[in-house]
Design a protein around this nucleic acid. Structure first.
Lengths: 232, 232
DNA sequence: TGGGAAAAAGGACATATGTCCTTTTTTTTC
DNA sequence: GAAAAAAAAGGACATATGTCCTTTTTCCCA
């Protein structure tokens, strides 16, 4: 992740985000701009953070690694995502690894500035309160989903939540298969098993494989399998 | 859950909690006191809350139920626990069921009062920010634990976190088995399977069964199985 | 104190998922 | 365009866990 010393760009990006509603101009001057490549790591489990990060452009993935070597993808985040909110509030060390999955633009702000100027600033407090609440919401959602449904159902949920935001195209919709290994991680299963599940769904004509892509043939059936659950 | 019209008791309870640091005297007068029996339900999935609840005495369990009829115990909470914080912030409906497991005393405060008087009150915002952060912290912790470790390891973690707070008695420690069914739920597994795991641990002389109680014989081994993880 | 009810434990078998490899397909490179 | 490399798919078998019952133990009360 390398710093961009382009105040004009920084200014333009920030003005185009909700940040000016929260922070004053002086604080905006304390911000620094970084550009991250795909694969760059923003922070890793165990780190002690000193800045809050605002992802203004790009995409990140958040995963956790465990002593047994396994990892679990927790979620993807699009702008405006915040990293370091929980760490700022609880003073604890980083629990999950954050990795950029696209070229991204990030703005950082020292915890020190927040402590000195925003500890008692309602708009800021409300802002991170909303963000953390949302994280909690999605987290408990996926927890119970992951634990109580077999992969087939979870995969159906995943398909729905991935597709529902897309253009509501007609009966058949596509999903790039390019990242099936990642999907497997997100679902907390092995690629092998996900593959097996997909194969079964193909056999049942619910979806169809087509050179690196999946085509949904029976959205009804997918909804049924997801039974109202959805990753958010 | 029945209301207690005992202002003296209410006052005494509240004074003995952190609430006076956050709310002024007028607000304290808006609070109502309830007594809940074991088994009473505070709120259920799908409810629309209008009050925030502060559990001042007793114990609650929080679990979620899913369309397939299964349920998953998310955590237990001791005082001072708060229910309705996320719902207050995000305006969403209740996602988890909250049930009292002991005789408990609860104080309620209308969201309306909070909206009108505390929306911009930093101590209040900070307070629930801390509470929600902590929930998120424990939630993501148990998520990954649940998903990536088999029951044997999770049970070891559970034992450690249950016992570590107890009196550090000598080599052998006890756990009431009275609620093994609940432990199974908490771990997201079936009672049958938990039983099987316990049996194996007994066979390996790690723990011992003794008329409705478990005795830990080899704490070292338990720690090893838990491999540093702990339910918080 | 002796049933009988309730709780706990366990047997048998089915399903979900993981691991390790091999085969097939796709992509890349020269 | 063919060979090599990389990615995807799949086979075989082992393990983890679930479901449904039966057996055993514990507890309670007449």
């Amino acid at each position: 992740m390398k710093e961009l010393h382009d105040r004009t760009l920084l200014h333009a990006l920030v003005q185009n985000s909700p940040l000016p509603d929260i922070f004053d101009d002086i604080t905006l001057h304390e911000m620094r701009l970084y550009q991250a490549e795909k694969g760059d790591i923003l922070c890793s489990k165990g780190d002690q953070l000193h800045h809050m990060y605002f992802i203004l452009k790009g995409k990140i993935k958040i995963f956790t690694t465990l002593p047994n070597g396994k990892s679990l993808l927790l979620r993807f985040n699009n702008p405006l995502a915040i990293i370091g909110d929980v760490e700022y509030v609880t003073q604890c060390e980083v629990r999950n690894t954050v990795e950029f999955v696209h070229l991204s633009l990030v703005v950082s702000l020292p915890f020190k500035v927040l402590q000195e100027n925003y500890q008692n600033h309602p708009p800021f407090l409300q802002f991170i309160l909303h963000k953390i609440s949302h994280k909690l919401h999605t987290s408990s959602n996926s927890t119970s989903l992951n634990l109580l449904y077999p992969v087939e159902n979870r995969f159906a949920s995943y398909l729905l939540s991935t597709l529902s935001s897309d253009t509501g195209s007609t009966a058949s919709e596509e999903l790039k298969t390019a990242k099936l290994t990642e999907v497997a991680e997100l679902l907390g299963t092995s690629y092998r098993h996900l593959n097996r599940v997909i194969r079964n769904l193909c056999a049942a004509s619910v979806i169809e494989r087509k050179k690196g892509a999946l085509i949904i043939k029976d959205r009804e059936k997918i909804s049924e399998l997801a039974s109202g659950n959805i990753y958010e």
